[in-house]
Design a protein around this nucleic acid. Structure first.
Lengths: 197, 197
DNA sequence: TTCCTTTCTTAAGATATCTTAATTTTTTTT
DNA sequence: AAAAAAAATTAAGATATCTTAAGAAAGGAA
């Protein structure tokens, strides 16, 4: 079977070791505290106004974050795929109601854990605190880059940049969702694509 | 004297203890690795294309981050005041050339330290790793909120929101800099302010 | 106080992007 | 394979925000 525990654990270890060296026994400890779940395509993982209890590590699949604006349109703020963590950060950290939804874009298998579990693991395994300090730094940098792109590029450039730099995303995600993420109406994106070649 | 070492150390301790409990001896250790410097108003702290070697903790003052766009206009991306850390995160973490400037908006006193010093301290004092894990989480959340504001609000609302929610900033920073930060031309902001009351 | 620089305001014309609504194409379900 | 649903395209008119250019006000230096 494709997602047998051992293979998943290997995937997790490989990901962790990109940042900090972990022993098998340490991975075992972390893994023992993680739960697994598979969401079907279009399944809602978190609803607006709920508290986001978990941080999700994607084994395979795509998860989007979005909110619904005053006109009833979905506005996508984030995509996450294999080997990314996703959650509603503010809700997860501060235990406040989320203003956004989390939804599986395709069938998606995740490992997940609660803030309490994570805090307990930090104490047992200080290395993990270093790992998450580094992961959080990288998330922050990714976010600053995203803001930078919106600051510097017009719609068309943003789209070209997205397709070029994130082929893993642009091939798995429908165009109207990419439009939403890039803050372009699907109609206008369609217009832009027409005179692209 | 107003910024005598003891008083500065007290300020630092108070700030650290908002997140994690620190003993005086631990603060002493951290403080012994920090340098102090005062920048004059309009003094450049970091130039574009330089590597940002330090993370700066502001004791008193205002520092702005900005880049210069293709038309030669300054575009402000961040303000930091008393009790904030500021740096060019990407440059500081990855040791890549900064695409932005750091500049004192008013006379500004800072404590600062290098990545190497910080990494050494993390090993000696695991609590500090926790502190920075939490500070980084909060920076990330602040950034997500900022993106949210740009996503949800038109220029006028952004301005009203800024003035209302960040009075400490809006009273110390000239209007054309606020306009730049809010991604509004100073002319248009002036227009918006006219029909505000 | 006076001069010089910095900051703020006014107004007219330009433009990137949106809105609405209808049609076509693609994908999913029966 | 047909029917239904979802996604993508087209086009015309609308609008928030920018650009340019000039002048007024405010603040700092001499």
């Amino acid at each position: 079977m494709c997602n047998a525990p051992t293979k998943v654990k290997e995937q997790l270890k490989k990901y962790f070791c990109r940042y900090v060296d972990f022993e098998d026994t340490e991975i075992d400890l972390v893994y023992s505290k993680l739960s697994t779940k598979t969401f079907r395509k279009k399944e809602i993982i978190l609803k607006e106004s709920q508290i986001c209890k978990y941080n999700y590590f994607i084994i395979k699949g795509v998860i989007r974050s979005f909110y619904i604006d005053e006109k009833g349109n979905e506005r996508i703020t984030q995509f996450a795929i294999d080997n990314w963590w996703t959650t509603n950060m503010e809700s997860f950290i501060a235990k406040t109601p989320s203003t956004q939804y989390l939804e599986a874009v395709e069938d998606t298998t995740v490992l997940y854990l609660s803030k309490e579990t994570l805090d307990t693991l930090y104490v047992k395994l200080p290395k993990l605190e270093r790992l998450f300090r580094m992961i959080t730094e990288n998330m922050l940098i990714a976010n600053l880059r995203k803001s930078d792109i919106f600051l510097k590029m017009k719609s068309k450039e943003r789209y070209v940049h997205f397709v070029k730099n994130l082929p893993d995303f642009s091939q798995r995600i429908p165009q109207y969702m990419i439009a939403s993420y890039l803050e372009i109406t699907p109609e206008y994106l369609s217009e832009l694509r027409k005179n692209l070649h």
